[in-house]
Design a binder for these strands. Structure first.
Lengths: 149, 149
DNA sequence: CGCAATCGATTGCAAAACACAATCACTTGT
DNA sequence: ACAAGTGATTGTGTTTTGCAATCGATTGCG
């Protein structure tokens, strides 16, 4: 049995604290798959293009749940199915992901097909993020914290 | 002797390609130190709060140079001193870093003193990033692509 | 000159994280 | 009963990281 010693941080710098949560090659890809591909189940994440292995995926899901970015719930219909949902904290990673997308589309050899999501967001203007986050809230949190338009 | 096989990407997804450049616990901290602490020399990066070790730092600097985020130049006065500068590609990481800062300040136990830089940027409004990036261009690139105010 | 201090790294070694394939216990569908 | 599907775990090598010591070259200073 291992005791989790209460998370001692390398520093209190905001950049550093963010990197301690998602500063690796896989965590944000899981969040991306939830946001843009609608994935909710282990096997779906496992099938992503980048080819994450199952032990790494299990580790990342657990860490993201512990960090409060995701929640894990059992599907009431299928006792073995775990459903992962974004929390508000996770949904608010979208602006970061959107900026990474913008940067890569400018400077890296992105696949034109995969770039379309980001391009569409750019064309939508400044409140694209808020609209997309609102949609994610409806899907992952429940619909109750929206003001009527 | 190991051969570096020409960078085959895990996927052409913009998020993934960004993470392949700076998706680790240290790369963005180096960029942060250049942007907000004015650091330009190996020994300065080495003295950051988070305590990077010298071999990791050397590796990250080399990778960031290879990725086109930084440039390395010899100080003409001191033959042993290397001066690292941000490229335009590196300067345009600022919106990503700013969003990470905003997210961590909302959700993580940041040091209030270290949070001030980000809070000030938030108070400046929507063109804070562009202003800060313009200042970085003057410092790192040369002054020639600025329109007069 | 002599020589310690400083420069950007490199080396050696142990520990941790990762990649990959096989497998697990359990549930579901038939 | 039993094959297929569920979210993982285990085992085994490889790679990356962390840490301390050290390197060769240059600089500062007497």
């Amino acid at each position: 049995m291992k005791m989790k010693d209460t998370h001692t941080h390398r520093s209190g710098c905001p950049i550093n604290l963010g990197l301690e949560v998602f500063g690796d090659k896989w965590s944000l890809l899981v969040v991306r798959d939830m946001m843009f591909a609608g994935k909710r189940h282990f096997r779906e994440f496992l099938a992503s293009d980048e080819g994450i292995s199952s032990n790494i995926l299990a580790d990342r899901l657990a860490k993201l749940v512990e960090a409060g970015v995701l929640t894990r719930a059992g599907d009431p219909e299928h006792k073995l199915k775990a459903i992962y949902s974004l929390t508000e904290k996770g949904i608010e990673l979208l602006p970061i992901i959107a900026e990474i997308s913008r940067w890569s589309r400018k400077y890296e050899p992105v696949d034109p097909v995969l770039a379309r999501t980001g391009e569409a967001r750019d064309r939508m203007g400044p409140d694209a993020n808020q609209q997309q986050m609102a949609a994610l809230r409806r899907l992952h949190l429940g619909a109750t914290d929206q003001a009527p338009v």
